[in-house]
Design a protein around this nucleic acid. Sequence first.
DNA 1: GATAGTTTCATACAACTGTTTGAATTGCAA
DNA 2: TTGCAATTCAAACAGTTGTATGAAACTATC
Lengths: 220, 220
Amino acid sequence: MASDHTRTAILAAAERLYADRGFGDVTLRDIVAEANVNLAAVNYHFGSKDELIAELFVTRSIATNRERLRELKAAEEQGGGRAPIEMILHALVGPTLRGCLGPENQRSSAARFMIRASIESVPPIRRIKNREIDHLRKFAGAMRRSLPDRSDVDIYWGLNFALAMAHHTIRESERLTKLSEGKCDLDDVEDVVARVVSVATIALTAGRMETKAPSRVAAR
Amino acid sequence: MASDHTRTAILAAAERLYADRGFGDVTLRDIVAEANVNLAAVNYHFGSKDELIAELFVTRSIATNRERLRELKAAEEQGGGRAPIEMILHALVGPTLRGCLGPENQRSSAARFMIRASIESVPPIRRIKNREIDHLRKFAGAMRRSLPDRSDVDIYWGLNFALAMAHHTIRESERLTKLSEGKCDLDDVEDVVARVVSVATIALTAGRMETKAPSRVAAR
DNA sequence: GATAGTTTCATACAACTGTTTGAATTGCAA
DNA sequence: TTGCAATTCAAACAGTTGTATGAAACTATC
């Protein structure tokens, strides 16, 4: 048991600094100063700066994905293999939104870090995100089982739009607050989740299926 | 008339390089090499690297915003001050999507640059984007006129979701193609626009207004 | 064709980056 | 206590970055 004190201190300091100031202008020297450890400690314990960032991201990312799958599995079991589409979407976007939004003053540095990670896009994180496709396929599968009459294309577009609304709301939460002059309450996370799920559900169930006519919703 | 040759060459080279390799690993030396000009030319003509990036972005950004407002104005005039919501949304997301998507081989470097700008987020660009709020307010206003019965909150959320779907689709176009194994055709830009507009329209018009019941769109 | 203003150029600068090194220190087992 | 490995440390390294400088080469005007 090497006490791990240094490792832990570096992780905590890095998470906090990246969350507050972004990846762009936080150097290893900033991190080790904040953590009160020697500069060489980062390379000794993590190998490189990128591996440090990667470890921060995967740790948090794994937690979110586990929670997503837990909710999905519960929903499918409850429905006997076929979960209602709203519950699937809820499992998809709920954990992410809950992990990043909420009252600012009580937002964990882990949450703020994940917001950063979704705004700035640095190589080590991008690499990890690219491996997320397999994870998303599980949701695509569940959605297909839930809506067997929908075409694959519609399923994927629905999945894409659901993620779009969730991630964009996180990324641009500040702007939305400013634009709406505070009228859109991003601290009420469950309301945000409900809105995203609601719209994504309509997108996946309304129109187009019954009427064969494709993508002609309100043309002139 | 200083012939402007050097200036133009720098802009073109920078746009191409940033588009292809991202802001992260393109240096001034790469740019001047590609443009066949002297290193000092960038600072001479643009002042700094950041101002060069800013100029690239605003040029393109102004063009998009002008097109957006042109479409919006046309729609409102045609409707006597009240444009149908689909046309407003079309004006909002159409120019952006058309400017960034489309067949890859014939995608302009300007388009690829704007994709980069929406993926990576570098300080000079972020600063410009923050000034975009006034522009968005014009759309919020038009939407309010179009849907006078909707609450402001719903309007802003609708606007947010419309932008979300458009931008996320641009940002993650590669992943969506891979995830859907090519089934989602991102080269058919008008279809993408139609899908985004369609979903955003439903989000803004369905449920909640007529039926007082909030966010209960397709419960079981 | 001399002159004044603009533009180009090679080069140097100063700062900062992540990483490495090898010696010093620590902690633990024998 | 001795010995050995794990850890810490100060220092330097090697490279890159954007920017500044001052002379040289142009260009257009008179």
